[in-house]
């Protein structure tokens, strides 16, 4: 929809510009735009540089030192990074982060596509989509607290299971099961969001593609495989990058999952964000800011590399329609 509306405007503008450029070289509007470019961009850029870019640089710098935040910084070079990979809690955190990213991403995308297919031909689809979308506006802690009650040993879920004759239900919130529970919650809350994005793309595919395919005798799966998937490919590749970035940012969902009894949840459910938080702001021990920032930089490098690889792998010729 949006693209079809934009095209005439864009063509119009290009025509205007070339016409005027032919007459006077550079039009007054263009000259004005050049003059106002820096005054318009400078404030946002300054804030961005001071509050965003500089901190990233500072994190990189700190990651080369041993520092408790108060005393003097001690040079350590890259040793922080090698120490990091010898730390079992960091390795667990890293593996968990990748697990959330890869398994969570795959399952979320498969479900989102299935939902898109169903929603396409459903009544009250917009209402259903809205309800499914809503969890992405909810603070992750809410789900953690709700799960902590619903899945507690004598909680409603186990009571319900007993009705069905399950007398030894799984220990939902035991240390080993926390991460799978987090993963399940994550998938459930994220699916609605990605379904909405994919739906927005699928809605722009012209109907006559499907009609033609149907006349040619293509089944539902073939239509998906040969029309939906290629036409929505652009959006899918953007979604994959979006998922990669946002899966690494998960924090509050894990922090309070199952209403953890200590200040921090057990190490087995940490991701890198939790690791950074516990290293930098521990309860009762000395902060290790060097290690914390080294872990943060490691996760940043990981996101960057995976994003670049994803973009390469998923690149296709865009389809015009």
């Amino acid at each position: 929809m949006a693209t079809t509306i934009q095209h005439p405007a864009r063509a119009d503008r290009a025509q205007n510009r070339s016409a005027r450029a032919g007459a006077t070289g550079v039009g007054p509007l263009e000259r004005q735009r050049r003059r106002t470019f820096w005054p318009f961009t400078a404030p946002a850029l300054a804030v961005y540089l001071v509050l965003f870019i500089a901190p990233v640089g500072y994190a990189l710098w700190t990651s080369l030192y041993k520092w408790d935040g108060m005393g003097a910084m001690q040079w350590r070079g890259l040793k922080n990074y090698s120490l990091l990979f010898q730390d079992p809690s960091f390795c667990t955190s890293l593996v968990n982060t990748l697990e959330l990213m890869v398994i969570g991403g795959t399952v979320t995308f498969v479900i989102s596509f299935a939902l898109t297919l169903v929603l396409r031909e459903m009544r009250a689809r917009l209402f259903a989509r809205s309800v499914l979308f809503f969890p992405s506006l909810v603070n992750g802690m809410v789900f953690g607290i709700a799960a902590g009650f619903l899945f507690s040993p004598s909680g409603p879920v186990n009571q319900a299971l007993r009705l069905f004759g399950v007398t030894t239900p799984p220990k939902w919130l035991s240390t080993d099961n926390l991460l799978p529970m987090v993963l399940g919650t994550l998938i459930w809350t994220a699916t609605g969001y990605y379904t909405s994005i994919i739906m927005a793309a699928v809605d722009q595919i012209p109907d006559y593609f499907y009609e033609a395919a149907e006349l040619d005798g293509a089944g539902a799966f073939q239509r998906f495989r040969h029309i939906t998937l290629p036409c929505a490919w652009d959006v899918i590749s953007v979604c994959a990058v979006l998922w990669t970035v946002s899966s690494v940012k998960i924090f509050e969902l894990i922090l309070l999952f199952g209403g953890s009894t200590n200040a921090f949840p057990p190490v087995s459910s940490w991701n890198t964000a939790l690791y950074v938080y516990t290293e930098a702001f521990p309860q009762g021990t000395v902060p290790r800011l060097g290690m914390a920032t080294a872990a943060a930089i490691t996760s940043l490098v990981m996101v960057t590399v995976i994003t670049i690889v994803l973009r390469r792998v998923l690149r296709r010729e865009p389809i015009e329609y």
Binding site: F37, T41, L45, Y48, L51, F52, I53, A54, P55, V56, Y58, A59, T62, G69, V241, V245, V248, K249, F251, T272, A273, V276, Y277, A280, L289, A292, T293, A295, A296, I297, S299, L300, V303, T304, T307
Partner: peptide, 26 residues
Amino acid sequence: SSALTMTFAMGLGVPGQVLVVPLFVG
């Protein structure tokens, strides 16, 4: 202009955990 647009877009990929220690110290 496109370089600046890229610079801003790059920020989309930075997880908050990278900024939390520097911003706290600052």
